[in-house]
Amino acid sequence: MRELYTTELEELESLLREEGKLVDRAIRGALNVLERDDLELADELIAFDDEIDRRYLTIEQRIPSLLARQTPVAGELRLVLAILYINLHLERIADYCVTVAKLAKLAHGLPRDRAVLEALEEMGERCREMLGTGLEYFYARDFTDSQALVEMDRPIDRANRKLIDRLIALGPDESQREWAMRMMLASRCLERIGDHAVDIGEQAAYLVRGRFEEFTDASHKPPRATT
């Protein structure tokens, strides 16, 4: 029984790894859709979400069964809980990518602004980096540098603010207003993806340390890094 149980845990983690890779592709796809204003790619990306959902649902369904049959405890309990939450975060990130694709479709053909697109690209790349780091903490069972994730999130927040300033500046120009509003929402999606990546890192920390702590808190200022 023990062997079967170990296999089931390993399979859950493998599924999560696959999901993680697919979600990274989804973020890259979303950035490409924005950059190229490509309708076909946008539809592809929306359809691609089914691939991610299949893994998400499989994990989601297997966990209650595993809990009921094997009653994991100690490190294994924390692993199962971490997988449960990370799975949820990955699925949310994928949904934000779909929203970006839909926004891009709505904004298709409207006059665009180079500076805004570059800022979005910058935010998106940072998000991918953060997701990779958060997942790596989990796979390696290592969270020694929890501040790294928080630090990575700051440029995203900064880029997001700068972008909003730029978009507000575009606002009075009626020909660009609709596009700007769509991009404002896309920017918000990317910013949220960064937050989910931090949450994934928190789950990795929980798995290793055995107690849950938030790296940052939305209602309080994050501690300033000493430089």
């Binding site: 023990r2 994991p72 405890v73 100690a74 490190g75 294994e76 309990l77 924390r78 055995g210 107690r211």
Partner: peptide, 18 residues
């Protein structure tokens, strides 16, 4: 604590059935 985050590897091994 014993069942979520035991301090000793031997406890972890026993409670998880490893």
């Amino acid at each position: 604590k014993i069942f979520t985050n035991p301090s000793d590897k031997r406890t972890e091994g026993y409670v998880t059935g490893r």
